[in-house]
C-alpha cells in the first residue's frame, strides 16, 4: 500500500493542494521508507533468529556474548545520523510552512462552537465556507470566541490552533481552484466532529466578484434570517421540534419557556435577542450553557432577520 510514488500520493492521501504540500510529502515518504527498512531489519532479524535459534533440546547451551562495543557504537550512531538528517530536512520544510510571504492576502478566521467564521478586510463575512483567490499567498489570522479549536486542511498539509485570547497565524498558497475540506482538530465538545468547513479556491477574478457582492441582496428579512441561521445556528438548533444541543425552534415564538433557575417567561422578540447576545443569562431547563454569545457579531439586519425567521417557524 505504501509502494509506488503515484499510488502513494494518489490513492489514499489527500491531494496536494498547497505549494508546500509536495515538500511535506517527500519528507514523509522518506520517513515511511526509512521506517519500513528499519522495521524489516529489526522484525526480520527477530523472526530469523527466533526460527534459526529455536530451542532444539532441553539442555541447549548458548553462547555467552555480553556485549560488542563496535557494534553497539554503530547501531547508536547510525540512527543518530539518520535522525539528524530528518531533523535538518524537517526544519527546512517547516520554515516553508510557517514563514508567511510578505504581502499575503489576509483573512480572519474565528472559531466558535461549532462553526468557523471568516472575516475579510473589505467587511465581507462568511461562515462555514471560506473563499480565497488561487495562486496567491493567503495569510489566515486565527482566533476563537470560546474554547480552543484547530483549523486543519489536509490537502494543504497545514494546521493551526485557534486559541481564545490570542491570535495565531498560518498561511497557504493554493495554485489550483477547487474546494478543500477543513476539519476542527482540537477537541471542543459535542459538535467537534461536525465543526467542518470548506475552502473554495477561486480564480482571482471570480474571487473578487464574490468579495464585492452583497450576500443579502434583494432578500427580505426572513430570507436573511434563514441564510444566517443555516450557517451559524444549525450546529445546535433545528427548525423542527427536535432538540439537538439546543432546543428546536418550531413554535418557539410565544411559547412559555422554563429556565434552569426556576423562572419562566413567554418567548418574544426581546427574549430571542437576549438569548443570542447573553445566552448564559437565561438557560433553558434541561439544556447546558454551551451557547457562545453572538454579541457584536451580527448586523442589525441579521439580528432582525433571525428573529423574523424564528417567528415564522410556527
Amino acid at each position: 500500500m505504501f509502494f509506488g510514488t503515484k499510488a502513494f500520493a494518489g490513492s489514499f492521501m489527500p491531494i496536494q493542494g498547497s505549494t508546500f504540500a509536495a515538500s511535506v510529502d517527500s519528507l514523509y515518504k522518506f520517513l515511511v521508507y526509512a521506517s519500513l527498512i528499519s522495521c524489516a531489519l529489526v522484525i526480520g532479524g527477530m523472526i530469523f533468529f527466533a526460527i534459526k535459534y529455536r530451542r532444539k533440546t532441553n539442555d541447549d547451551k548458548t553462547a555467552y556474548i555480553t556485549h560488542n562495543s563496535t557494534l553497539e557504537f554503530i547501531w547508536s550512531f547510525v540512527p543518530f545520523v539518520i535522525f539528524m538528517i530528518v531533523f535538518g530536512w524537517s526544519w527546512y520544510v517547516y520554515l516553508q510552512i510557517r514563514v508567511v510571504p510578505k504581502g499575503a492576502f489576509e483573512i480572519n478566521v474565528v472559531g466558535q462552537k461549532w462553526n468557523w467564521d471568516f472575516i475579510y478586510k473589505s467587511g465581507r463575512k462568511s461562515s462555514g465556507e471560506m473563499y480565497a483567490p488561487a495562486g496567491e499567498p493567503i495569510k489566515l489570522i486565527l482566533s476563537s470566541r470560546d474554547v480552543i479549536h484547530s483549523f486543519y486542511i489536509p490537502a494543504f498539509r497545514n494546521k493551526q490552533d485557534a486559541v481564545p485570547g490570542m491570535y495565531t497565524q498560518m498561511w497557504f498558497n493554493a495554485p489550483k481552484p477547487g474546494s478543500y475540506q477543513v476539519f476542527c482538530t482540537e477537541y471542543c465538545g459535542e459538535g467537534h466532529s461536525s465543526m467542518l468547513a470548506k475552502i473554495h479556491v477561486l480564480p482571482k477574478d471570480k474571487f473578487e466578484e464574490w468579495l464585492r457582492n452583497d450576500p443579502y441582496k434583494g432578500m427580505n428579512l426572513v430570507q436573511v434570517g434563514l441564510k444566517l441561521f443555516d450557517s451559524r445556528c444549525t450546529a445546535c438548533h433545528s427548525v423542527s421540534e427536535e432538540n439537538k444541543v439546543g432546543p428546536g425552534f418550531k413554535g418557539l415564538f410565544g411559547k412559555k419557556r422554563d429556565f434552569a433557575d426556576g423562572t419562566s417567561l413567554l418567548a418574544d422578540e426581546n427574549y430571542i435577542r437576549e438569548s443570542m447576545m447573553m445566552p448564559a443569562k437565561k438557560v433553558v431547563k434541561g439544556f447546558s450553557n454551551v451557547m457562545t454569545s453572538f454579541q457584536g457579531q451580527l448586523s442589525e439586519q441579521e439580528v432582525l432577520g433571525v428573529i423574523e425567521y424564528i417567528k415564522s417557524l410556527q
Binding site: S23, V24, L27, W89, S90, W91, Y94, T185
Partner: peptide
C-alpha cells in the same frame, strides 16, 4: 513497539507533525 517507535520519529518530525497532530 518497533512500529510504534518509528512512527514516533515520524511525529517528532515537526514539518510532518503539523499535518498529523490530533489525527
Amino acid at each position: 513497539f518497533t512500529i510504534g517507535g518509528v512512527t514516533g520519529i515520524i511525529l517528532a518530525t515537526i514539518a510532518v507533525d503539523v499535518r498529523f497532530h490530533d489525527t
